[in-house]
Nucleic acid binder design. Structure first.
Length: 468
RNA sequence: CGCGGGGUAGAGCAAUGGCAGCUCGUCAGGCCCAUAACCUGAAGGUUGGGGGUUCGAAUCCCCUCCCCGCAACCA
């Protein structure tokens, strides 16, 4: 991160085919931590998330449910928002690709790119695969069939579409990736993008004929803008009017590894074509699996945010994912593991430390001082500046363990007067700092600890995390 | 030769050439402030397999087996 004082943090917008699950939520949590952290540091933060609502898949899903596409995506967007609220995600704008202002920006963007000469119309022969809901190039076919859906017959379609001159930006992109250290995080993903680029870019079709559910091409009503072209622009539509798409803003995109190519290679090329600035950091995280199997709705192998919150309470999903989630490496989740982490790390670790310190404080006449923490511990800053969310939490938990050892060694429950005051002073200071450090990660928990500890008389209360 | 990640104690992971470590679980002890929590100690590994380089290999090289993603619209 940098010293600029405006920061734009975005998450990918989720495809409104089905509501989000815990895997999607992971990304929102990462973004939320960055947003809260930077706000506390006094920076101006704009944090966006939302839904990607156009495209043929969505139209068909809606029709199957006897709904108009708009009705259907309204439902999904509402549900997604509820899930985000359960996690206390502090977004500033929930942008939907069906929002009127977004449509306006997409059309503007299109015109700019067209005027630049980077969009051209060309008749192409395509093979449409019903399994993929997508066009295949002849070169992509395996034995004249789609490699992913060999059982489906391909429809040969001749269509005139708009193409984006992606190939024109190959060296621009290569330069960007090679020169800008942090442009794609982590490094191995960046290498992957560079390797892909070196294979050569082909121009890409960015419009479709005979698709109704989408944004139509300006001055060409027959054509509809391809969903990715439409979706990527959401970042700009959300941020630009608020003044967060200028050179004074540090722009961070968070996304899953599956979307990296579009964000690292197509989006910057589109921005360049429209004479707009490119983002600073593109952070791609890995995937969560459940008992080694992909999170998949069709296989009934998902956990939703509401389930986890219902079972363990708020904050637990945030903690689990931030500490044990798939940051730069795929990670596995299971109910057993969540329960174990809840009991050992949250209840026995953080929760118990808060209890034992506050109990001894409240039964003695100990009076705390008002030297409240004013900034994050250095390890929080170091780790968050490098996007090491899990390591930052690990450091906090090391601090908890160290304090437990200290209290044990001092046998503080036997002590009195001056000696006790000294030990409690140490413990209270530590707990207060822990609460401060936890603010970006577990805001509700941090607040609850502060309620008990940030006054003269330390209060003993109910366990923060009742044992399961 | 499509691209990439991975295989280390019962489980999850760390260690990029120098005594193989951490968390959980297990076992023993201590403590009694705390949510049967906390603290100390112990057991448990020929690092998937084979070969090579080296004084020394989980780590570098070659071969091989196995898992998992991505492959241009699933976070």
């Amino acid at each position: 991160m940098t010293k600029k004082d405006k920061i734009l943090i975005t998450t990918a917008i989720d495809y409104a085919n089905s509501p989000i699950h815990i895997g999607h939520a992971y990304q929102k949590i990462l973004a939320d931590v960055l947003a809260r952290y930077n706000r506390i540091l006094g920076k101006e933060v704009y944090f966006t998330t939302g839904t990607d609502e156009h495209g043929q898949n969505i139209e068909e899903t809606a029709r199957k449910k006897n709904l108009e596409p708009k009705e259907y995506v309204d439902q999904i967007a509402k549900k997604d928002k509820e899930e985000l609220d359960l996690l206390n995600i502090s977004y500033n704008r929930f942008i939907r690709t069906t929002d009127a202002d977004h449509e306006k920006y997409v059309k503007e963007f299109w015109k700019k790119t067209k005027n630049k000469g980077d969009l051209y119309k060309e008749k192409s022969e395509g093979y449409y695969c019903l399994g993929c809901e997508a066009f295949k190039r002849k070169s992509e076919l395996v034995n004249g069939r789609c490699g992913d859906h060999p059982s489906k017959d391909l429809q040969k379609i001749e269509e005139e579409n708009y193409f984006f001159k992606w190939s024109k930006y190959q060296s621009f992109l290569l330069n960007l990736l090679e020169k800008k250290e942090d442009f794609v995080v982590p490094k191995n993903k960046k290498r992957e993008m560079i390797n892909f680029l070196k294979q050569g870019l082909k121009d890409i079709s960015v419009s479709r004929k005979n698709i109704d559910w989408g944004i139509s091409v300006p001055e060409d009503q027959e054509q509809t803008i391809y969903v990715w072209f439409d979706a990527l622009i959401n970042y700009y539509s959300a941020a630009q009017p608020k003044g967060f798409w200028d050179e004074q803003t540090h722009i961070i995109h968070l996304l899953g590894k599956d979307n990296l190519r579009w964000h690292a290679l197509l989006w910057p090329a589109m921005l360049k074509a429209a004479d707009l600035r490119v983002p600073d950091v593109i952070l791609a995280h890995e995937f969560l699996s459940m008992k080694s199997k992909k999170l998949s709705k069709s296989e009934n192998n998902i956990i939703t945010v509401s389930e986890i919150v219902k079972k363990f309470g708020r904050g637990v999903a945030r903690y689990y994912l931030l500490r044990h989630g798939p940051l730069f490496k795929d990670a596995d989740i299971s109910w057993d593991r969540v329960e174990n982490v809840y009991n050992k790390e949250l209840a026995d670790g953080l929760g118990n430390l808060v209890q034992r310190v506050s109990k001894v404080c409240s039964r003695s006449d100990y009076k705390a001082d008002f030297n409240l923490p004013e900034k994050f511990s250095p390890y929080i800053e170091n780790n968050l500046n490098n996007f090491n969310f899990n390591q930052a939490l690990k450091e906090i938990w090391n601090k908890i363990s160290k304090e437990n050892k200290y209290l044990e060694k001092k046998e503080f429950w036997h002590k009195q007067n001056k000696e006790l005051t000294e030990i409690l002073g140490h413990a209270v200071k530590t707990v207060r700092q822990i609460a401060y450090d936890l603010k970006p990660f577990l805001p509700e928990i941090a607040e609850e600890i502060e309620k008990r500890f940030n006054s003269k008389k330390i209060k003993f209360g109910k366990p923060l995390f009742p044992k399961k």
